[in-house]
């Protein structure tokens, strides 16, 4: 009987981090897209950094802040008696950190190709800024934002390096698909490793198919504009 816990754990970590990244990425994208050029360049580099850093470097930086010896981690332990590392939800920090740039960059691209005269038109028609954002800007950019969300989910699901550093591998508690594959391979349980590899392949292929479908739909709509 296969223990499905890593699948459930991976999906819930990826799901929660996608929700976090969805809002923070869109927020960051919206403000960076409108920022003056110099600020834009600097912020953009900073926000994209987790995408190009090795996940172990991201994990190390997260441990610096969240580890029990220093910073936020020490504070949480002392005041709330909560350890921020080595729990299933610690992996959310890692997954969100590495998925954030994907959401942010795709959403920014979508916002930057948004025709600002639509927002001007909304304003002259008396529509409120929040109506313009939620009912005009977001729906017009929805393809890009959806694609970013799906990509973020896929990246969060596949996160290994930073996760293994901050949440470790505890069967039934912090194990994810990615960490399980490594553990089974290390302990010479090839059959189990292969099973998880196949599960992972299936999920990733499905996600990429969705992204492709979204992009094709996007292109077809654009042709008409």
């Amino acid at each position: 009987m296969m223990d499905w816990y890593p699948l459930w754990n991976s999906v819930r970590i990826a799901g929660i981090s996608t929700i976090i990244v969805f809002f923070s990425g869109i927020c960051a994208a919206y403000y960076v897209a409108k920022a003056p050029r110099l600020v834009k360049g600097a912020l953009d580099a900073l926000l994209t950094l987790p995408l190009v850093l090795p996940p172990t470097v991201v994990g190390y930086l997260l441990l610096l802040v969240l580890g029990p010896k220093r910073g936020l981690g020490a504070f949480a332990l002392e005041v709330f008696h909560v350890r921020l590392t080595m729990t299933w939800w610690s992996a959310v920090f890692a997954a969100a950190a590495v998925a954030f740039p994907l959401m942010y960059r795709t959403a920014r691209g979508a916002f930057e190709s948004f025709d600002e005269t639509l927002a001007y038109a909304g304003k002259t028609l008396g529509l409120s800024n929040s109506y313009i954002f939620w009912r005009i800007r977001m729906p017009v950019c929805r393809q890009g934002i959806l694609a970013g969300t799906v990509l973020s989910f896929a990246r969060a699901l596949g996160e290994y390096g930073a996760t293994s550093m901050i949440a470790g591998y505890i069967p039934g508690r912090t194990a994810t698909i990615a960490t399980a594959v490594y553990q089974f391979w290390r302990t010479n349980d090839d059959a189990a490793a292969l099973r998880w590899v196949l599960v992972n392949l299936g999920i990733s292929a499905a996600v990429l198919l969705v992204v492709n479908l979204l992009e094709r739909k996007n292109r077809e709509e654009r042709k008409w504009l």
Binding site: D115, T117, L118, Y120, A121, G122, T124, I136, P139, V140, R142, E221, L225
Partner: peptide, 11 residues
């Protein structure tokens, strides 16, 4: 304001 490209909301 009638914009040059009309600025209709495409969705």
């Amino acid at each position: 304001y009638l914009f040059q490209n009309y600025a209709l909301f495409p969705h």
